[in-house]
């Protein structure tokens, strides 16, 4: 059985075919093989959330999936979410509110927050600060103390709800 696997997947809208080592994690694959260094490696054991990205529409830990598992999958990283404009309002809110300092957790934090915002929009609700804190509870930020992040996410939730109604 091979230690290398051929995979074809869609990454940020682009079709990618690569041969990867079976042991290579998804986050190492997007960083090392595709040069998408916006997904960060913080712990490699699924706790810090710096490698949070989207696979088939839901957020995952990039360190707790293998690239080999992503044959046929749709992967979206912060680069894709940025270029499509999907999280432009959230990014602007983070910038305005200084909801990031070193920025290392930020791509994962934005990706996680966007999932909550989408879920909230789907049920026509604005998440509470506690719900926001709970949804980002798997994303470690050492710089901000979280308060500014909660403010930024909350402001976007309200703005999106307002824009919709």
């Amino acid at each position: 059985m091979s230690m290398d696997i051929d995979i074809t997947l869609t990454v940020n809208g682009e079709r990618v075919t690569e041969r990867v080592e079976a042991r290579k994690t998804l986050v190492d694959f997007v960083r090392d093989d595709l040069g998408l260094t916006g997904s960060h490696v913080g712990c490699e054991h699924g706790v810090c959330g710096a490698c949070t990205m989207r696979v088939d529409g839901v957020i995952v830990r990039g360190c707790l999936m293998l690239a080999a598992q992503c044959d046929g999958a749709t992967v979206e990283t912060i680069e894709g979410l940025s270029d499509s404009g999907e999280v432009a309002d959230l990014q602007a809110a983070f910038e305005q509110r200084n909801a990031l300092q070193c920025g290392y957790c930020t791509p994962g934090m934005l990706t996680a927050a966007q999932e909550l915002l989408q879920q909230a929009q789907a049920r026509n609700a604005v998440p509470s600060r506690d719900e926001i804190r709970e949804h980002i509870s798997g994303n470690y930020c050492r710089c901000t103390g979280y308060h500014a992040i909660v403010d930024a996410v909350e402001s976007v939730a309200k703005a999106r709800a307002g824009a919709k109604s």
């Binding site: 059985m1 091979s2 230690m3 696997i5 080592e21 079976a22 042991r23 994690t25 190492d28 490699e44 293998l66 080999a68 598992q69 044959d71």
Partner: peptide, 11 residues
Amino acid sequence: MKPAPFAYKKA
């Protein structure tokens, strides 16, 4: 750390 080498098979 990176995993030690292993093979992978999708059943």
